[in-house]
Write a protein that binds this DNA or RNA. Structure first.
Lengths: 116, 116
DNA sequence: AAATCATATCAGCATTGGATGATGTGTGCT
DNA sequence: AGCACACATCATCCAATGCTGATATGATTT
């Protein structure tokens, strides 16, 4: 499919970025930047529905971006590594200095509003 | 929508990551990491169709990730800033060390194959 | 001026992905 | 044991996104 540049690496990167490309998942990661949180806390912090949060957490966990620690009937989630935080930081820098036009990119509206 | 963490920043990040979350766009960016390329060159390098490439380039350009320099009937595209390359690099590090499970994340299949 | 080439734009289609409500699993308390 | 709570999973629905072929625009050459 891609003669020149290693498809595998690209596909992986694409998947990683897609994992980060969702406002809900970013909100969850944001909630975890300050420390471990239970699912219930994340629900409260983000305003998302519980099944929705669980679903996204499963995704983030599969991807290795967050870690889960069961404790009694609670499950504490945390960023799995400081690099995750770092990537978010680098992205913010890029937004501030380079990618200012992102808000105006009309190719997709994802992130502007939620569906029904 | 998100009481705790600045929604705006999150929406912006989501949009930026979504800009990077597409295998075609990543392939294009990859093709540009080695220098300026015309649309035709990118088409050849990536194997994508020309309208498709133009479309993605418009997206990337709107987002500020790439810059366009018309020269005669050609248009040369290039990464707009070294930070773009940097972000891709950080993402690769994350993939190598932390997010190894990304390949197995079954919440979405984006990046594994193209449609019809 | 006509033709050709490089790129951009358009309308339509198919697919993916995310949200929701209902339900299942397992733990802790009384 | 029975109940209540915290979280996970399921099936379904809907919207957004990306791809394609056709076409328009603009520039260069003859």
């Amino acid at each position: 499919m891609l003669p020149a540049a290693k498809p595998n690496a690209i596909q992986l990167q694409a998947k990683l970025f897609r994992g980060l490309a969702d406002p809900s998942r970013l909100a969850i990661l944001q909630a975890l930047r300050t420390g471990s949180r239970t699912v219930g806390q994340i629900v409260t912090l983000t305003g998302l529905r519980q099944p929705n949060v669980s679903n996204h957490l499963a995704c983030l966990r599969d991807c290795g971006l967050v870690s889960a620690t069961p404790r009694g009937r609670f499950v504490f989630y945390a960023l799995s590594d400081r690099r995750v935080d770092h990537l978010l930081h680098v992205a913010d820098e890029l937004l501030a200095e380079v990618a200012k036009g992102v808000y105006a990119c009309s190719r997709y509206r994802h992130g502007e509003a939620n569906h029904g």
